[in-house]
Design a protein around this nucleic acid. Structure first.
Length: 476
DNA sequence: ATGTTC
């Protein structure tokens, strides 16, 4: 789309003044060339979000923004419950609490390369991946409830992880105020055999080399050492989160009129935070957050089991685990007054700056790790939250490279086999149950991740710490 | 994202 549709605030910040039913401005943080590459739908979606009741300050789009369901992916919006603010199922997304975690290995690139193929095969064999993938863990109804309440803490109690991991997960591995009773029987059933599975789409488990350091002090604080390798896991709440999203979206469409909400787009279905439906959704969504946190904890455990076969002394401590599809209650300053707000981040990462009280002590001086999942070929980045992000976008940053091409277009442009072969020629081993899935995820289907993170840094959302180059990718 | 079109 044309950047001229926006008022330029800086090279990486653009604004749309309220027009029509917009209650607040829309702001996009990206360079002119990234904006030029985006679909016009991003403009429509971010300005539609600005029309929702109770929205505060502005509707935001991150530099990786692209067309999503209702809200853009790469969207941030905050709502005030006391001013009729809403919660939107489409504003969280179907894959509730999809997120990324990175484990350190303190193994060198050479050590990984010495077993690269066998390690890739073993990870692929041990970590279930793909549509409908099922694991060894089967939950009965009581255990499902315990999991929905306990999140990663539940996983650790059941032996699928370590107690010291919890400090390195948002909210110490457990969302409070989850309401398992708000999760339907159908959603529970779908999750019965899906704990500890990657799923499909852009989800993956990668072994990555720390290939470049941008901020030595912060990298050292995070435990990232150039030439060593990390394990990064990207996945979410699987069938359970999807089912919750589907059911509440339907209910929110039906009830909108009753709550006096005029929807600028049916996909923006929402309910007042203070309504019965809004509270029920928040309870179910928090239960789905716990499902995703437990799921990633279990997958981390599975990765540790595989690494132990190859490297007896490898520990795989957790560096950080952060979700990028959530609605969270956080306190932020509005007009000089700190208020609790409901922050929707859809394909956007929380990015608290140095000193934030919610960060574990070991990370607090450096700011929150912001884990940016790039494509299989271009690699990923670790960023650090900056204090400036608080006033830019309620302490949020991008979450990935962002698609520049639809899945369908990608399958027309590339064959999965060729993508695997091309990556192999670059030293990257890809293992996937689906060649079509690999084609959809071809590196060329994504924006230039470097341009995205450079935009995020220039806009004051988060700063670059390290670049991670994949060596092994288990793709869902 | 998704028992990939309830």
């Amino acid at each position: 789309m044309e950047a001229s549709r926006f008022e330029k605030l800086s090279d990486t910040a653009w604004r749309v003044a309220p027009f029509g039913a917009m209650r607040v401005p829309a702001i996009i943080y990206a360079t002119e060339s990234l904006i030029a590459e985006m679909d016009d739908k991003v403009f429509d979606q971010v300005t539609n979000v600005a029309k929702l009741p109770g929205i505060v300050r502005a509707a935001y789009a991150m530099p990786d923004a692209h067309w999503g369901y209702g809200f853009p992916i790469g969207g941030v919006a905050a709502f005030d419950a006391g001013e009729g603010g809403v919660v939107s199922a489409g504003g969280v997304g179907f894959d509730v609490s999809c997120g990324v975690r990175t484990h350190l290995t303190h193994l060198t690139r050479e050590q990984i390369l010495s077993v690269q193929q066998a390690l890739a095969d073993a990870l692929f064999e041990h970590v279930p991946a793909g549509v409908g993938s099922e694991g060894e863990i089967a939950l009965d109804d009581a255990e499902t409830t315990a999991m929905l309440l306990g999140g990663a803490q539940w996983a650790v109690e059941r032996g699928f992880g370590r107690a010291e991991d919890l400090d390195r997960i948002e909210e110490k591995g457990r969302a409070t105020d989850a309401d398992p009773a708000a999760v339907s029987e159908h959603a529970r059933q779908r999750q019965r055999r899906e704990m500890g599975t990657l799923g499909s789409g852009n989800h993956y488990l990668e072994v990555q080399e720390v290939a470049e350091i941008f901020d030595p002090a912060v990298a050292a604080g995070y435990g990232l050492i150039q030439g060593e390798c990390v394990v990064t896991i990207h996945c979410g709440s699987r069938g359970l989160g999807h089912q919750i999203g589907t059911e509440f979206l339907r209910e929110m469409v039906i009830s909108a009129q009753q709550y006096g909400i005029v929807l600028p787009d049916r996909e923006l279905a929402c309910a007042p935070i203070e309504s019965e439906l809004g509270q029920k959704y928040l309870g179910a969504m928090r239960a789905a957050i716990n499902c995703a946190l437990a799921n990633r904890e279990i997958i981390g455990h599975l990765a540790r089991q595989v690494f132990a076969r190859f490297f007896e002394r490898a520990e795989l401590p957790l560096m950080f685990d952060v979700s990028h599809n959530t609605c969270k209650t956080e306190r932020h300053a509005i007009d000089g007054e700190t208020r609790p707000l409901f922050i929707h981040r859809k394909g956007a990462t929380r990015a608290f700056g140095p000193g934030h009280e919610s960060l574990p002590e070991a990370l607090r001086p450096f700011g929150q790790p912001v884990l940016i999942g790039g494509s299989m070929g271009a690699g990923s980045y670790v960023l650090a939250g900056m204090e400036t992000s608080e006033r830019q976008a309620f302490s949020s940053a991008c979450h990935g490279a962002g698609r520049r091409m639809s899945r369908h277009a990608a399958t027309r442009a590339w064959g999965g086999r060729k993508v695997v072969d091309d990556l192999r020629a670059q030293g990257i081993i890809v293992k996937s149950p689906s060649l079509r899935g690999v084609a959809e995820e071809a590196p060329g289907a994504y924006k230039d991740v470097r341009a995205v993170v450079d935009s995020a840094q220039a806009a004051g959302l988060a700063k670059k710490v390290a670049f991670l180059k994949p060596l092994i990718c288990v793709k869902g």
